[in-house]
Design a protein around this nucleic acid. Structure first.
Lengths: 125, 125
DNA sequence: CGCTGATATGCAGGCGGGTCGATGCTGTTG
DNA sequence: CAACAGCATCGACCCGCCTGCATATCAGCG
């Protein structure tokens, strides 16, 4: 599978209108679906929520295993998917790997989904 | 699987804060993931886009089969999933089944994803 | 330098989902 | 009433994904 992380960046480009007036292109649909697939999982949604609400806005794997009720490899797996989707960023400090939300990554997806009724489809570059 | 359509309605309730400050509950995560799963598919994203950009904002199955390049049963399958997710509504007129977007359904999902930075988490009921 | 703890990766089992062909159902038409 | 067209449902196949167990990797420590 290709890197989905770049997909989010490409979709923020002005020429792409996801659910706006024009019919979406196949490639754009696949890119957007790829990022949405990363979001469409209960464990990953809870991971994002847990990390965001963590003290410094960051959390390591050992902090996330217990509240999720999943094994450590499974949690690492989900964190990897979220990171490759461009939603999380990883920073290794010593033995621990700290994850934090990529600023406004989720908001970008929300903007892509929102029809052009209230928001401008083509934003100024 | 239970009906996901009601999930969207429940999540619009003010007491649910999806990716906001508080850690998301397991049940809420599963509901939100259910709706996102309906969105996280290239064919379904294109269906939503095609229907929205259709002349009257509605389209029947026979109009959607060709541009998608999928068989008619497959298209009906995707339309069913989108309808059960509360994103589409179906109206049968004669032999044809017309699908149209549920007003502001996608915008509701976008609101649920957006952190409380720009949007109010709790909206007036 | 070996040991321990925190993560990541490989592997395999099991389940859910996307797709299509065949079929059934319903309303229209001649 | 018979034939036909649009659509939904069924059954089946195949692929991808979620999960856990086992293992590898790496940093800190005694």
């Amino acid at each position: 599978m290709e890197d989905v992380g770049t997909a989010l960046a490409e979709m923020t480009m002005p020429q792409i209108s996801p659910l706006a007036g024009e019919p979406i292109e196949r490639a754009d649909a696949e890119r957007l679906a790829g990022v949405l697939k990363a979001l469409a999982d209960p464990a990953r949604l809870r991971l994002l929520s847990l990390i965001q609400s963590a003290p410094e806005g960051e959390a390591c794997v050992c902090d996330l295993t217990a509240p999720l009720g999943l094994s450590q490899p499974t949690v690492s797996h989900h964190l990897r998917i979220l990171t490759e989707a461009g939603l999380l960023e990883r920073e290794k400090r010593g033995v621990w790997a700290y994850y934090r939300l990529v600023p406004s990554a989720i908001a970008t997806i929300a903007d892509l989904l929102t029809p052009p009724r209230k928001r401008a489809t083509k934003r100024a570059r």
